[in-house]
Write a protein that binds this DNA or RNA. Structure first.
Length: 505
RNA sequence: GGUCCCGUAGCUCAAUGGUAGAGCAGUUGACUCUUAAUCAAUUGGUUGAAGGUUCGAGUCCUUCCGGGAUCACCA
C-alpha cells in the first residue's frame, strides 16, 4: 500500500513534521524522559510553597493550544490532571517558540521544564524554559476543545459515535475523561470485593477456562479444540462445578473472579464474555449468604462511592438498608396477580397466564413459566435492592430442595435497578440427589435437544467423597459496574466489547 | 434471527427530489496573559457499498455491510 493511500491528509502533514524533527536531530520518540512532578503534584507543590520559586519538569499530552505572536499557551494532560504551559519568546527564546509552533500538534506527548508561576488570569502554570517532543501523534485525536466551567473540564464536539468509541476504545479513553472514570470505578469495585472476601477468610482460586465438560449454568458454550490431545474443549460458562470440587477438598471458603463465555445473543445486558464473581462458603445456607451479600455490597458502596446511595438512570438506590425478601410465590402474586400455589401443574398455570393475556412459551416447564412471570412482571419493578427466594426446583438443578416443599429449592436472586445482579443457593451436596437431577434435566433437554448437557461424572465422583453443606453465590461484575457507574449498556463497562468484525480490520 | 431507526469532511452536525454546507480541527497570515483565545483568508466529500426509479437522488426503492433500540434466545 502506498503512503498516499495509507495516510490521510492530516496524517501526512504530521508525518512531514515528524520527518523534519528527525532531520534536525530530534528523536520524536526518545527512549527516556524526565519527570519531576505530575501535573497535579506541580500545582499542589506551588500552592503549598507560597510563591517560592519552584522548578518542575512535567510530561503529558497537549490538549489545547493558543498561539500568539511571541507567546503561546497550551494545556498538557497527564494521568493526574492538566497544567497550562506558558511559552514566551523572552523566556524560551524566539527560535524555540517558533519551533513549537511549527512542529507541535494537539495530541503530541511532550516533556516541559520550567518554573511554576501564576498567570495574570490567575491560573497556576509552567513558564517553560525547555521543551521536548517525547511522542509525536500522527493521527489527530477526535476531539476539539476544552472549556472550564465552574472548575470542571468540559470537552466540546468530542467522540460520540458508539461504534467508533467501542472499536477505538483507545481514542475514546484519550478523549472522554468520564470513560476513564468508569473503568477506574470498575477496578475499585473489583478491589473492594477482593478486600471484603479476603477479610472474611476466603481463598482466591483459579479454575480451568478450558473445560472438557461444561456446566453450572444453562447456556450454549463456545467450542474449541486441542490439537495434540485431539480433544474438543469448551470455554467455561460458569465456575460452579470446579469451585465446589474444592469444598470437597477441604477448602472451606473459596472465590474466583474471572471470565465466563456464553454463546448467546448480545444485547444491553449481555456480552459473549463477561466477568463473574462466584464464592462458596462451607456451613452457610442461602439465608446466611443473603446477609453476607448485603454486607458485601454495602462495603463496596462505602469503598467506591463513599456511602450507601447511588443513582441509576434517574432512580435513587440505597444499599444501606436491609434488602426486602420476597418469595417467588408472593412476588408473582403481588406483581402478576397469579397465586401459583393454586396451579400446581404446567397446564393449569399456562391456562391462567393465557387468560390474563400474558405470553406463554411453548414447551416450557411450570418452573420456566414462573421464571417468565418473574422476568416480565416482577424484575422490572425491583429498583431498590431486593431478594427473591424459593425458586422452582426444575429450573435449579444444583440447589438443595426446600424441606417440606419438594417443588421449590433454597435459592435466591438479588435484584437492583430493575435487573438481576446475583444468584445463590444452598448448594445441593447429596450426590445421589444430584445424579437424579442431572438425569431428570438430561431427559427434559433431550426433548428440545439443542442444549443437551453432558453429565459431569467427575463432579459426581467428587461429591461422593463428601461435600460439606455450603452456600454458593454468583454475581455479574459488569452489571454491578453498570449500576455503580450509572451506565445503561454493558458495553460501556467493558473496555473492548464484542462487535461484528469489519472488512477493514 | 424478527421489527424499527441510523450511517454526510478528522470530530459534532445541517441540507422540500433541484449547485453538498456550518462550527471546531487543519493550512497561511496578524497578535507578549490566553483558556471553546481572537481577527483575516483558505484546504478538505466516490454522502457506508452496489444496483434501481427519475430530466435530476444525500433524500425514493431493492440488496448487502456496520451500528443502535426492541423482541426472541439466555434451565
Amino acid at each position: 500500500m502506498s503512503e498516499e493511500q495509507q495516510f490521510t491528509e492530516l496524517e501526512r502533514l504530521r508525518l512531514a513534521k515528524l520527518e523534519a524533527l528527525r532531520q534536525q536531530g530530534n528523536d520524536p520518540f526518545p527512549p527516556r524522559v524526565e519527570r519531576s512532578h505530575t501535573t497535579a503534584a506541580a500545582i499542589a507543590a506551588f500552592e503549598a510553597g507560597g510563591e517560592q520559586p519552584l522548578l518542575a519538569t512535567i510530561v503529558g499530552r497537549i490538549r489545547s493550544m493558543r498561539l500568539m505572536g511571541k507567546l503561546a499557551f497550551a494545556h498538557v494532560e497527564d494521568g493526574h490532571g492538566r497544567l497550562q504551559l506558558f511559552l514566551r519568546a523572552d523566556d524560551l527564546g524566539a527560535e524555540n517558540l517558533q519551533h513549537f509552533k511549527d512542529y507541535y500538534d494537539l495530541g503530541d506527548f511532550v516533556e516541559a521544564q520550567g518554573e511554576m508561576f501564576r498567570t495574570k488570569a490567575g491560573e497556576v502554570s509552567l513558564n517553560v524554559k525547555a521543551l521536548r517532543m517525547i511522542a509525536k501523534a500522527l493521527t489527530p485525536l477526535p476531539a476539539a476543545k476544552d472549556e472550564i466551567v465552574d472548575g470542571e473540564v468540559v470537552r466540546h464536539a468530542t467522540l460520540a459515535d458508539p461504534e467508533t468509541r467501542y472499536r477505538q476504545r483507545y481514542a475514546d479513553l484519550a478523549v472522554n475523561p468520564q470513560v476513564r472514570e468508569v473503568f477506574k470505578m470498575r477496578a475499585g469495585i473489583l478491589r473492594s470485593l477482593r478486600e471484603f472476601l479476603d477479610q472474611h477468610d476466603f481463598l482466591e482460586v483459579e479454575t480451568p477456562v478450558l473445560q472438557p465438560v461444561y456446566g453450572g449454568a444453562a447456556a450454549r458454550p463456545f467450542v474449541t479444540h486441542h490439537n495434540q490431545l485431539k480433544q474438543d474443549l469448551y470455554l467455561r460458562i460458569s465456575f460452579e462445578l470446579y469451585l465446589k470440587r474444592l469444598l470437597v477438598g477441604g477448602l472451606e471458603r473459596v472465590y474466583e473472579i474471572g471470565r465466563d463465555f456464553r454463546n448467546e445473543g448480545v444485547d444491553r445486558t449481555h456480552n459473549p464474555e463477561f466477568t463473574m464473581l462466584e464464592f462458596y462458603m462451607a456451613y452457610a445456607d442461602y439465608r446466611r449468604v443473603m446477609e453476607f451479600t448485603e454486607e458485601m455490597l454495602r462495603y463496596v458502596g462505602r469503598q467506591v462511592l463513599g456511602g450507601s446511595k447511588l443513582s441509576y438512570q434517574g432512580h435513587e438506590i440505597d444499599l444501606g438498608n436491609a434488602w426486602p425478601r420476597i418469595t417467588i410465590a408472593d412476588a408473582v402474586h403481588e406483581f402478576a396477580g397469579i397465586d401459583i400455589s393454586k396451579y400446581p401443574d404446567v397446564n393449569s398455570l399456562a391456562a391462567v397466564m393465557k387468560d390474563k393475556g400474558y405470553k406463554v412459551r411453548v414447551g416450557g416447564s411450570r418452573g420456566k413459566l414462573i421464571e417468565d412471570l418473574v422476568g416480565d412482571h416482577v424484575e422490572p419493578r425491583l429498583i431498590q435492592p431486593t431478594f427473591l427466594y424459593d425458586y422452582p426446583r426444575e429450573v435449579s438443578p444444583l440447589a438443595k430442595s426446600q424441606p417440606g416443599d419438594p417443588s421449590t429449592v433454597e435459592r435466591f436472586e438479588g435484584y437492583m435497578g430493575g435487573f438481576e445482579i446475583c444468584n445463590a443457593f444452598s448448594e445441593l451436596n447429596d450426590p445421589l440427589d444430584q445424579q437424579a437431577r442431572f438425569e431428570e434435566m438430561g431427559r427434559s433437554l433431550k426433548a428440545g435437544d439443542e442444549d443437551l448437557h453432558p453429565m459431569d461424572e467427575d463432579y459426581l465422583r467428587a461429591m461422593r467423597y463428601g461435600m460439606p453443606p455450603n452456600g454458593g453465590f454468583g454475581m455479574g461484575i459488569d452489571r454491578i459496574t453498570m449500576l455503580f457507574t450509572d451506565q445503561p449498556n454493558i458495553r460501556e463497562v467493558i473496555l473492548f466489547p464484542h462487535l461484528r468484525r469489519r472488512e477493514d480490520e
